[in-house]
Amino acid sequence: MDPLSTLWETFFDWDSMRAALPEMLTVGLPNTLILAISAALLGSLLGMLLAVAGISRTRWLRWPARVYTDVFRGLPAAATILLIGVGLAPLGMQVWGPNPYPLGILALSLIAAAYIGEIFRAGIQSVEAAQLEGARALGFSWGEAMRLVIIPQGVRRVLPAWVNQLIALIKDSSLVYFLGLVASQRELFRIGQDHAATTGNESALLLAGLCYLTLTVPLTHAVNWIDRRLRQGRPATAAEDDDALALAGQNALPGDAAARAGTRRDER
């Protein structure tokens, strides 16, 4: 047989795709979204706690956050998911029965939290100390100043990096297939793989890939959009007597992860 047409049938066998599509959309897509969104919420929450602990003046908060981040950033995602999903399964069995999702979501969240924590920490630390002083001078406590003034600014600066992490999370959610899923629990990748195994061609897996892309590509563009907006600021007419130096001082976005967010210095 002509090798080219073999290749074509391996990837673009429409019948295989058509057969996989309904399950892909009604089972796989919702499950992928459940995994990714739950882990994004939990991971961001844990990440924020890690970020705040990481900049704490208390050593007993700072170094556990440091160790946590090093460990969960340093392990392969597959290893973490297996260790937690399988290792804690007996425990999970007693709490929520034989459902791998809670532990899968937990593992994904713990991994995401390590990265998101670093992203948030970099953002928070990029906010000028003068902002904290300004808030403290009004009578806000350290905690209130962080919550109302510093963290909102810091998070805003690293939104692009945060969205990148969500993209990674959508992709990593495929790894829960390690944990053994019953038919109704399968997510996009597993459904694609199962169909590929029965049909003997990769078309269903390619279809799963396309489903991932419909989720991730718009997010990538969202990153670019946020990035541009942060760099250029909102459409505005600067006051004619603008004091460029002072404004740059207020708006400059230094810092490593913040560099991803672009720096407003560019416009000067």
Partner: peptide, 20 residues
């Protein structure tokens, strides 16, 4: 100190307004 700072207002060289 937080209550004191509500009684003692302060204005800074770099304004320290909240840009967001």
């Amino acid at each position: 100190p937080d209550a004191l700072r509500q009684r003692v207002g302060m204005v800074f060289q770099q304004f320290n307004l909240f840009p967001h």
